[in-house]
Simulated scan of single mutants.
Amino acid sequence: MTSMPAAERLGSHIKRAEQALNATKTAVLKPAGLTVAQYGALLHLSANAGISAAALARLCGVTPPTMNTVLKNLQDRGYIERTPHEWHRNVLETRLTDEGRAVMADADVRAVGVERALAAEFTEEEREALIGLLGRCVDLLEKERP
């Protein structure tokens, strides 16, 4: 017997919600030819042209080696270009290509549909409360991290 039943563990409920969201986004992004990780990278690149792989990894919540794999796949498909920084030659700046912008636009319509359906399940007050509660979770867990 464990000291806390699984049904009472908030982390389990948060993880289930995250898994359901990722599975749904995986399904809707498949026709666009992107994984959730690739979509996340393109999404952040669309708002942060020239960002480094390390900074992009932080935004996407993945490790730098994982992001490098994602970026290599996107570059091989012609969706991004990576060029040396003007002053810091060891830093590669990453930008969307025209083809990458087109794929991103298609994928974004699909992903936003999932987000809108999810948001529609809640009233405005409930959405604000959920966002606030999840923010409190993040704040506590980041403070408690060793």
Score class of each variant (00 low, 15 high):
R145D: 12
V109Q: 05
R101S: 07
H44S: 10
K25V: 07
K25M: 11
L59D: 15
R77V: 04
T97N: 06
R58A: 15
D108Y: 02
A54Y: 11
V138C: 11
R77H: 06
V62I: 15
A105Q: 08
L29M: 09
E128D: 08
L34Q: 02
I80M: 06
E99W: 03
V109S: 06
E144C: 12
I14K: 09
R127L: 02
S52H: 05
V114K: 01
L141P: 01
G78D: 09
R9T: 07
I51Q: 07
T123A: 07
E144D: 09
K15Q: 12
G113S: 02
L10Y: 00
E126G: 04
T69C: 11
A105I: 03
I80Q: 05
R9I: 12
L133F: 00
H44R: 14
T123G: 15
L74H: 09
A102I: 10
L92S: 13
G132K: 05
K30F: 12
V91K: 06
I131V: 10
Y39M: 08
E142T: 15
K72G: 14
G61S: 13
M67W: 05
A6R: 04
T24D: 08
L29Q: 07
E128K: 06
N90Y: 06
T2H: 05
D106C: 08
I51M: 05
R16C: 01
A120D: 14
E144S: 11
V36M: 04
A17T: 13
V112N: 01
T94A: 06
E18Q: 13
V70Q: 04
H44K: 14
R136I: 10
K15V: 04
A37W: 04
E144P: 03
A107G: 10
H85L: 02
F122K: 14
A57Y: 10
N90C: 00
V62C: 15
A53M: 01
G40M: 06
I80G: 03
I131K: 06
L130P: 12
L59M: 13
E144A: 15
D98M: 08
V114M: 00
L71H: 09
L118R: 04
P65N: 05
Q19T: 04
I14V: 13
G11V: 08
N73E: 13
A7T: 12
T123P: 13
R110S: 11
A105D: 06
E86S: 09
T123S: 15
L92Q: 15
L42G: 05
R89P: 02
A117K: 02
R82D: 02
A117N: 07
L34N: 02
E8W: 00
L118T: 08
L10M: 05
H13S: 13
M4K: 04
T2K: 06
A107I: 10
T83M: 11
L133G: 08
